[in-house]
Design a protein around this nucleic acid. Sequence first.
RNA 1: UGAGCAAGCUGGGCAGCCGCGACUUUUUUAAGUUGAGGAAAGUCCGGGCUCCGCAGGGCAGGGUGCUGGAAAACGUCCAGUGAGGGCGACCUCAAGGAAAGUGCCACAGAAAACAAACCGCCUUUUUUUAAAGGUAAGGAUGAAACGGUGCGGUAAGAGCGCACCAGCAGCCUGGCGACUGGCUGGCUUGGUAAACCCCACCCGGAGCAAGACCAAAUAGGAGGGAUUAAGGAUGGCCCGUCCGCCCCUCGGGUAUGGUCGCUGGAGGUGCCAGGCAACUGGCAUCGUAGAUAGAUGGCUGCCACUCCUGCACAGGAGUACAGAACCCGGCUUACACGCUUGCUCGGCUU
Length: 124
Amino acid sequence: MLPKNKRLRNSADFAAVYKQGKYVVSRQLVLYYRKNTGTAEIRVGFVASKKLGASTVRNRCKRLLREAVRRLLPEIKPGYDLVLVSRPPLKTERFQNIVATLARLLRKAGLMENKNEETSCLEH
RNA sequence: UGAGCAAGCUGGGCAGCCGCGACUUUUUUAAGUUGAGGAAAGUCCGGGCUCCGCAGGGCAGGGUGCUGGAAAACGUCCAGUGAGGGCGACCUCAAGGAAAGUGCCACAGAAAACAAACCGCCUUUUUUUAAAGGUAAGGAUGAAACGGUGCGGUAAGAGCGCACCAGCAGCCUGGCGACUGGCUGGCUUGGUAAACCCCACCCGGAGCAAGACCAAAUAGGAGGGAUUAAGGAUGGCCCGUCCGCCCCUCGGGUAUGGUCGCUGGAGGUGCCAGGCAACUGGCAUCGUAGAUAGAUGGCUGCCACUCCUGCACAGGAGUACAGAACCCGGCUUACACGCUUGCUCGGCUU
């Protein structure tokens, strides 16, 4: 889990990331990102729409994503706002694969600091 | 031991590491404590609480509907009554009124409700194939045909007469009551009220995004006095009530952010007493989530269970339904593997 100051928490921030940011897509999730000049923190928001299913399913998807972000947090470039949107295949995915998928999307967006040590985050 | 009926419980367990929300302490960055459900769900009822306001009357509208009790209240629960089903344990019931009125009763059938008469039966007339009259036993249709069965009676028949049964009315007995049991009477009244309707009882509206406060930004409000009309508010309509226009006084209001409301309550457990029970009273004891893009997650080990591969060992996959959002009482719906108690009907053995 992430502490409160590293999460996106109001709708204006979400709207700014959607409107001004770029995005990368995989089968399981979508990553929106936007450079935030006001802070050196990384702030992340999590989204699970009702298309995924009941509230237990949506909660589980968001928790898995939060945990994945926490694992990768030391390697992400600071000063960005991120939004992670869950897509239906995420429901049945195993946690290790979610971490790998997220790392691949972050590299694709150019947000990882040390591209050489690609697999370090997976060694748990 | 088999088949069933009823009531209830559990909701994978134990450790370790890394994290998150809240609270407490604190050297201010750490430590400790604590952290989803029986349905948290559907939002179908009822109440607490909050505001609007005065809720006053009538009409309209909505709800409930055997009796008694419980309860803050209910459409809930308990105990009964009646009807229906099951060999039984037991289960089901939207169970007031059809003699206040209106409507409807498809198809079939002669006829579906102030009765009527297709075939038939009987009498008379007659050209022996019809007419007039009587009749509602029998046939045929239908979910339902104007009480049922039997005896008498008759031209043939009919509550026309009688007995029993069903139903109706009155009286008496038992019961707080629904109702039950009995006697007497006159002989008889289709179904449908989850059709309109009638009767009895109940119902002001909106809901924690209620509502209170603070900050910035922006421009509206409260109290008093006076008072004509149009107009507006009071869930719908009518009456009634209030506001509007002007003057004076006061400083305050709005879902962007924050604080409160926010969890100790019709509270849980045990014992005793009252009650058939729902439940009530007394005493003792327990402390039990409060988030707001919304906290419960990830990994490892052992054990339990299910499925697949499989001779065993072993390996792999998985562990239901589902996530608090102001709080309670219910209802309804969902739920893997299991467990407990009581009872019924059989089989076998003694």
